[in-house]
Simulated assay, not measured.
Amino acid sequence: MTMTRKGTARTVEQMIEDAEGVHRRVQVNLAESPLGWLKARGLVTRRQFDAGELLRRDWEKAGLGARVTMCWDMATTSARGRRSAPAPIEPGLASLAARDRLDGALAAAGPGLKDILWRVVCACEGLAAAESALGWPTRAGKLVLGFGLDRAADFYRLPG
């Protein structure tokens, strides 16, 4: 695997094996999510993409991803007087609300669909890698991911 730089996007050159077992060299844009890649190629609808973005937003707000740095939100306190700005919403409450939405969306997707949703949308795993990890046949993930995204869109009450 070699890294190259094209304009402002970082790309990685990788060898992949297609469905027929043929190895091909492809360029992967590291700035593009797997869901964004599917949307750019017309493989998911706008509604499905929006549902996935809401799911990923809730995943990140819930703080379930790996932390790289220390959280300094509550490290400093300041005196609050009559003329000071109101206190910000406690970060813990926003995190809990996001966690509740995330749990609700995954529950709405159901046990057979939430695995692929989490892998592709939250963990940003490629569709082929998710299919392989779940032991699914090639190209099954796209169909199942679509069903899961539709159910997440229903949970988030996105217009259809």
Rank of each mutant, 00 (worst) to 15 (best):
G135R: 09
L43T: 00
A133R: 03
C122I: 15
L35W: 03
G7H: 01
G65V: 09
L158H: 02
T77V: 12
W72F: 12
W37D: 13
E125M: 13
A109H: 08
E13Y: 05
G141R: 01
A98E: 12
T4K: 13
A87Y: 03
C124R: 14
R101I: 01
P159W: 10
E17V: 13
T45L: 11
A109R: 09
R47H: 08
D154Y: 09
G126Y: 00
R41D: 08
K142S: 07
K142F: 02
R99C: 04
L96D: 14
R101S: 09
L55H: 02
W136P: 04
C124F: 08
K6H: 06
L127V: 06
G112Y: 03
R119F: 05
T8A: 06
I16P: 06
R67T: 02
R119W: 02
R119I: 01
D115T: 01
V144Y: 05
S78Y: 12
D73W: 15
G52N: 11
G112S: 11
D115A: 06
I16Q: 10
E32P: 00
D115W: 00
F155H: 14
D58M: 07
W59F: 13
W37F: 11
R56M: 02
G21R: 12
G135T: 07
E20L: 15
A128H: 04
L149F: 12
L93C: 04
G146W: 04
R67L: 05
M15V: 14
A51Y: 00
L35E: 06
R46P: 07
P34E: 07
L113V: 00
E53K: 14
T138C: 10
R157L: 13
G160L: 12
D18V: 00
G7L: 02
A130W: 03
W136L: 14
A94F: 06
I89F: 05
V120N: 08
I89L: 12
A98I: 10
S78W: 11
L102R: 03
E60V: 11
D73A: 14
T11A: 06
L96R: 12
R151I: 08
A130D: 02
K142D: 05
L43I: 02
S95Y: 00
D58N: 09
M1V: 09
I89G: 09
W136D: 09
A51R: 01
R101N: 13
G110P: 04
E125L: 08
L30W: 01
A62K: 11
Q48H: 12
A133K: 05
G36C: 07
W118E: 11
R80N: 07
F155A: 09
I89R: 11
F147Y: 14
M74Y: 02
L134I: 13
K39F: 10
D150M: 14
G81L: 01
A19R: 15
V12S: 15
R5P: 03
A152N: 03
R56Y: 05
G21P: 14
R67Y: 01
P111D: 15
I16L: 12
V28F: 09
D73L: 13
R57D: 10
R5A: 13
P91Q: 03
T11F: 12
G135A: 08
W59V: 01
G36N: 06
V22L: 15
A133L: 04
L158M: 01
G112F: 03
L145E: 03
K61Q: 09
F155P: 05
M15A: 10
K61I: 00
P159G: 14
R25P: 05
